[in-house]
Design a protein around this nucleic acid. Structure first.
Lengths: 221, 221
DNA sequence: GGAGAGTCCCTAACGGTGTTAGATGGTTGG
DNA sequence: CCAACCATCTAACACCGTTAGGGACTCTCC
């Protein structure tokens, strides 16, 4: 009757083990064999609980959003969504390689749905049409995931960690300034502007512009 | 003297072979051994020309942009950038798994630089400040790459090919409508709006909102 | 109580992966 | 002609996802 009691492994325990391996070894080191070892079990056993690695990654995707909560409904819609997606970025950054796992995966798990529901509720309350509200959730989600994906790439990761950031940035700046000025006048001249902003700056700028763009879709107060 | 003549392989020929393999087998089937076979050579030989697979992928990233041209400078800045990034999306979609290869890779190759230069030139000409111009190129590039990455994922890929698109969309819609209405009232009610738009619609909407947002940064005419 | 079904993990193996060490033959410069 | 260098080879290592088939255990039913 109680099938869970008889089994040492649960689908759920499997996913939690995968989260631990991901956090410890990164997405490149996340193998079926290591997840199995984390559970003191052999790799082939996992296939009883999961069709294949792809399915495990799908479950993992949603699990990465398990311990996240929508921010409080404070301030106008714009302040709310600024905080919403700033927190979403932080959440992804705090989980190793989270963006790489999520990237290109369609999130229909319970946690993703929970957030979609909450966002839609706030957007409609703010006065957005049904069409605009649905488009806006997709747009904002895509933006954050795409942004963090680049942000977690090896080169930019070095930038993010306070220590190396200035060095990497100025190395890239030098590289740009060394380009032939007759072919790349703007890159040469703007090398400083291109490499100066932090990832926080860049993310904030893009988020504000998207919020600006969405604001134009609201009927005048 | 002429080292290229003595060698059957060039770094360039290697990259072109990788492009062919990618196009034929997708990113999952892109292995050093297959690229080597494409050149009638054994895998270990590639390591004479390239440090490792990662470096090959970096070169491949830039090569995927080799046969792309910025659109003509016709119309105002907004029309130009609409066409610019619509074409960029199309370009990526036309090359199998292009987004997956590019994702999380910092593009400093000659082709990427060529486009960055061109975009900066147009943005400054349109009246954007140096700071805004540099931020805008990053924002737009991030948006398109992130969008196409999701678009080329298995589930949405089925949607894109005209045949299955309506079926997949309505299956997802049914799934949403089947959710408990007391927990997910908005998802249930907006199931149609969420699944109705095509990827073209979604991309266009997001692009227009970003352009709206950027427009607010222009000094009044 | 015993038989059978079902559950859940095992061992063993297959064909693949990226990468390295070291040998080998060909071309070139002195 | 010989030494150096270039470019490729063979062989191997340590992994990977996945499958087939077996064996121990528990539960259900006659």
């Amino acid at each position: 009757m109680n099938t869970e009691a008889t089994s040492g492994l649960t689908r759920d325990a499997l996913v939690r083990a995968a989260v631990r391996v991901l956090d410890r070894e990164g997405v490149a080191g996340l193998s079926m064999r290591k997840v199995a070892a984390e559970l003191d079990v052999k790799a082939a056993s996992l296939y009883w609980h999961v069709r294949n690695k792809e399915e495990l990654l799908d479950l993992l995707t949603d699990a990465l959003m398990a311990d996240a909560e929508p921010p409080p409904r404070r301030g106008d819609w714009r302040a709310q969504f600024r905080e919403y997606f700033t927190a979403y970025r932080r959440h992804l950054l705090d989980r190793r390689d989270a963006a790489k796992v999520i990237a290109g995966r369609f999130g229909l798990g319970p946690n993703m749905l929970r957030f979609a529901e909450d966002q839609l509720s706030r957007l409609r309350e703010a006065g957005f049409s049904d069409a605009d509200a649905t488009m806006a959730t997709y747009l904002l989600g895509t933006y954050v995931q795409g942004f963090v994906l680049q942000e977690q790439s090896p080169l930019t990761a070095a930038e993010t960690t306070g220590a190396g950031r200035r060095e990497v940035a100025s190395a890239v700046a030098d590289q740009l300034r060394a380009l032939p000025a007759e072919s790349f006048p703007n890159l040469v001249e703007l090398a400083g502007d291109l490499t100066g902003p932090t990832m926080d700056d860049r993310f904030g700028y893009g988020l504000e512009r998207i919020l600006d763009g969405l604001a134009t879709r609201l009927p005048p107060a």
